[in-house]
């Protein structure tokens, strides 16, 4: 019985494949699947099969019925489509034409990096604070322990508006403003992104650039906390394999102070042209907030401590995107801006 079913399937498949038009196909459907068709006829002989084999044979027969139906339906669609071939041809598209452009501009690469820095520090529980671009000498220098005639003022040649007002040379004044606003409450945890200005204009200096300042003040902030925070930042920004290195340095508003290097993102620390073969890249300045700064801003340096850091956004963007020329950022050349889409 099973062999007969098999033979019927083979015969029907050959016939359906060979069918030339819908008419013929219709005849085949009646011939194999109709009430008086061959499958029905075959099943009539089921009585002669032993009782225990009947369920198996019944199932096989049903499967065959379904197979044949599908076979005939598919052939029917193919024959129908073939009948409309002229129309399909008219509707043919050239799939190699470009897709319709999605209208999309892009943020400036510096905004991309600023957004990323902000995201990282939001996640670490920092607030974002802002201060004015035109600052008083007090906030920009005096309050940060840089009195008039201090040699450290040479480090930052400034654009002045008048003797008491200038374009801020760093985002550090926002430290003072943020502390003044909050003192004597604890903790303070802010970052301050913004534009800063220095009287420098050459291949590696722009008279305007961007910084992000960071500040944390609490009862027990330590130098080790600063190191931990910056390591976390470096890994979030440049990848989880990052290492950092702190070197003693000098800033009037921190004591102790540290320059912070990250392992070179080009060579991973082996030494290359970007890192002048040192394996390290300097990316920010940092330290423990100087007691005089805490005092000016309304905190008692015997009771609270804090750390502060400041980084150049252009420097980070150049490293991250492999940009070699600082001046590109402010040329706003579309050929440049479009690369960050």
């Amino acid at each position: 019985m099973l062999e007969k079913l098999k033979a019927l399937e083979e015969e029907a498949r050959a016939a359906v494949d060979a069918a030339a038009d819908l008419e013929e196909l219709k005849g085949l459907k009646v011939r194999y699947l109709g009430k008086k068709g061959e499958l029905t006829a075959l099943l009539r002989g089921l009585g002669s099969v032993p009782a225990e084999e009947r369920p198996l044979i019944g199932k096989e027969a049903n499967d065959l019925r379904q197979k044949l139906e599908q076979m005939i339906d598919r052939k029917e669609s193919r024959l129908k489509d073939a009948g409309k071939s002229g129309q399909w041809e008219k509707e043919r598209i050239d799939v190699t034409l470009p897709g319709l452009p999605t209208v999309l501009g892009q943020r400036h690469p510096l905004t991309l990096v600023l957004d990323e820095i902000k995201d990282i520090f939001y996640g670490l529980g920092f607030q974002v604070a802002h201060g004015p671009d035109i600052e008083t000498d007090f906030y920009n220098f005096e309050a940060l322990n840089i009195p008039a005639d201090h040699p450290a003022r040479d480090m930052q040649d400034s654009f002045y508006i008048n003797p008491g007002l200038l374009l801020r040379t760093h985002t550090s004044p926002v430290q003072i403003r943020a502390m003044e606003k909050r003192a004597p409450q604890l903790p303070v945890r802010v970052i301050a992104p913004g534009k800063v200005y220095r009287r420098d204009d050459d291949a590696t200096h722009s008279p305007m650039f961007h910084q992000v300042e960071g500040l944390a003040i609490d009862k027990n902030i330590t130098f080790a906390d600063l190191k931990g925070t910056l390591l976390l930042f470096a890994r979030e920004m440049f990848g989880s394999g990052q290492k950092i290195r702190l070197r003693p340095s000098f800033f009037p508003f921190t004591e102790p102070s540290a320059e912070v290097d990250i392992s070179c993102i080009m060579c991973g620390g082996d030494g290359c042209r970007t890192c002048s073969d040192t394996g390290w890249l300097e990316i920010l300045g940092s330290g423990m907030v100087h007691p005089r700064v805490l005092e000016v801003a309304g905190y008692n340096p015997k009771e609270v401590t804090g750390y502060a850091f400041g980084m150049g956004v252009e420097r980070i963007a150049m490293l991250k995107y492999g940009i070699g020329d600082l001046r590109l950022f402010f040329s706003n050349d579309l050929r440049f801006l479009k690369q960050f889409s």
Binding site: Y122, G125, F126, Q127, V128, L186, P187, R189, A216, D218, K219, N220, I221, T222, F223, A224, D225, K227, G228, T229, L231, L232, R245, L246, R247, P248, E255, P256, S257, A258, M288
Partner: peptide, 27 residues
Amino acid sequence: VEEVARLHGYDKIPITLPEGALLENRE
């Protein structure tokens, strides 16, 4: 403090994160 830290070695400073109260820090 800085003299001690720099001569002890900045590389020997441990790595920790600040503890303390959370702040409202939404944009």
